[in-house]
Nucleic acid binder design. Structure first.
Lengths: 163, 163
DNA sequence: CTGTTCTCTTGAGTAGGTCAAATCAACGCG
DNA sequence: CGCGTTGATTTGACCTACTCAAGAGAACAG
């Protein structure tokens, strides 16, 4: 899938650099990943990339509208390339797996709270919490809760299922 | 408002202690506060309370179903006493003010994503992002984004408007 | 009043970021 | 194609929000 990242970067007013292309490559392969995982995976392509560079790149991508940042409670921020289509997320309490869901009730009714209390709402963020198919069959009873894992310096790539 | 916190604590299988009553008192006055602010306010009532005690108390309260924890992206966790009624939140991007909103479309339609992708969903979390009435009139253009404030060791009490 | 058990205090440690200064590379210009 | 400007990356320090562990202290049943 030869995407023209060059053009998209330039269109956003950003320079085309190796670190940025590496990060975009990782994001294209793994729908929902945290910064650390991105750094690890990107290093396979561009070994000299530093963790802070990843943060910088991600901030630039989010700022330029090429990526979106989501922050599920109790875990690190995740990044995805799917932007501008108002979709939401399913998060597994047990393993952290994230899947996309299209907007619940059509276009953007989520943008209309029953009573906005004077707020000018510009975005509605919806997160569905539950157990993914695998974890349901593992007999586990939602241990994850919130709090950072049991010391496992996680770096597992959390693939996401497209809804 | 003389609430029988004693009974509610005991009903949840928790002991009745001074720190717990102090924290409950603060939460009753301020609908959506972070742990640090709770600690500061609680110290006015019970000076010897430690920050860690506050974390412990909050964990106990959440575990016992007396409080709820919400974690808006880009900021510290907030706690509230309103539990068990499936309501959602409006968050101001500028000042962080949080207001409650009742469930958008009646009972719990939020619990039915269009395609659950095999997940067993047990909760739907909805956050509406925008600008509160005050910040709209201040001519500011959403500077907050995410990231911890400009060094101000914040302790401002963020009151919440009941929707 | 006494003992058990839970809770709080104290202190140390951690993940997941942020910010600033200096080096380095992209790319428009001639 | 080389040059300079400007933006990107490296390097390194720092910070917030939170967790865990060990011991002292308080709550409550008997």
């Amino acid at each position: 899938m030869e995407t023209a990242w060059d053009e998209r970067l330039r269109a956003a007013g950003l320079r085309v650099t190796r670190p940025r292309l590496s990060v975009l490559g990782v994001l294209a392969e793994h729908p929902h990943v945290d910064a650390e995982t991105i750094a690890t995976a990107a290093r396979a392509v561009h070994p000299s990339i530093s963790p802070q560079a990843v943060y910088g790149v991600l901030k630039a991508l989010v700022g330029g509208g090429l990526a979106r940042r989501i922050e599920p409670a109790g875990g690190p921020a995740l990044y995805e390339l799917r932007v501008g289509d108002n979709h939401h997320h399913l998060v597994c309490r047990e393993c952290g797996l994230v899947a996309d869901v299209d907007c619940v009730v059509g276009a953007a009714p989520c943008l209309a709270p029953s009573d906005a209390a004077g707020f000018a709402v510009d975005e509605a963020e919806v997160v569905f919490w539950g157990l993914c198919a695998d974890c349901q069959h593992s007999g586990v009873v939602a241990r994850r809760q919130h709090g950072y894992g049991t010391g496992s310096t996680s770096s597992s790539i959390r693939g996401g299922v497209r809804a």
